[in-house]
């Protein structure tokens, strides 16, 4: 009994300290965002600032650069990417999981192989393609390379594999078309998987730095991470307070969205939401 108690305490202690290590930079960002300039670089570790400078830091962050515009760009791009990924991945995954056709196995192996290609490796061909299309420095250029997600296809296929074949047979007898089955039967049963894929996709593309850096030039097209960096070099110089305020603002939507969808997210990861 005492041993169990001790073990459980030890376990929580370890988990808590690990959590603290991972959270530390994040906490430091938030703390710095409310500190005045002269309190940021001190010899001592000061969590609570003596003078609260949150208001002016956040005011500078929001007014000196079009931060809201950057966030709107981020929103448009991530939502467009997610929607097109779903529009492609769901029917493709259905075909791979539930339909019989020649070359299915080869196709699936090809998809698995694509999972292993790092995006950086194909960035130059993509850049040239976007150039030929005249899509540089536009939403289309930001969205197009990610409009098909092999990870999404793979994830949804794994999930659809667990849907019983009888359910699809029943739907066919009841008069659903194949597309009807995909969107009206498969998608509603796969909501947890779609939500977790959504979180992966949106977090990845909201935070993406590499590709936007390559295709975007003009300031109106900047996405949030680029915006923060532009902020550092252009306006703020070495003023870290406003910079951290801007960083806090751009991660806030993700954190809020995660907290709201937390339950579904964990369901999606464990895939146990289905009966």
């Amino acid at each position: 009994m005492g041993y169990d108690r001790l073990f459980s305490m030890l376990r929580h202690l370890i988990l808590a300290s690990l959590a603290l290590i991972f959270l530390a930079p994040f906490i430091w960002m938030v703390v710095t965002s409310i500190k005045p300039e002269d309190e940021i670089f001190l010899n001592e570790l000061r969590i609570i600032p003596e003078r609260f400078a949150g208001y002016e830091n956040y005011r500078i962050a929001l007014t000196e650069t079009p931060l809201l515009r950057f966030m709107l760009n981020g929103l448009i791009v991530t939502v467009a990417i997610f929607l097109s990924q779903v529009a492609v991945a769901v029917p493709a995954a259905y075909a791979l999981a539930k339909l019989q056709f020649k070359g299915k196995q080869v196709l699936f192996i090809a998809i698995l192989a694509c999972l292993m290609i790092p995006p950086q490796a194909v960035s130059i061909p993509w850049y040239l393609l976007m150039y030929k299309f005249g899509w540089l420095d536009s939403y289309a250029g930001l969205v197009a390379p990610f409009s098909i997600s092999v990870f999404g296809i793979f994830l949804m296929r794994q999930f659809f594999n667990t849907v019983p074949d009888d359910l699809i047979s029943a739907a066919r007898l009841d008069g659903y078309s194949e597309l009807g089955i995909v969107w009206k039967i498969m998608v509603p049963t796969a909501i947890p998987a779609l939500i977790s894929f959504g979180i992966f996709s949106i977090v990845a593309h909201w935070n993406d730095y590499f590709w936007p850096l390559i295709v975007v030039n003009s300031q109106e097209m900047l996405t949030p991470p680029l915006g923060v960096v532009a902020f550092k070099s252009d306006e703020a110089g070495d003023s870290y307070g406003p910079l951290m305020a801007a960083a806090t603002i751009i991660v806030a939507p993700l954190v809020i969205a995660y907290l709201l969808a937390q339950k579904r997210f964990i369901e999606g990861i464990t895939m146990s939401g289905m009966k």
Partner: peptide, 11 residues
């Protein structure tokens, strides 16, 4: 048709 696994639409 009636199936062994019932095949009811879960949603």
């Amino acid at each position: 048709m009636v199936f062994q696994s019932y095949a009811l639409y879960p949603h």
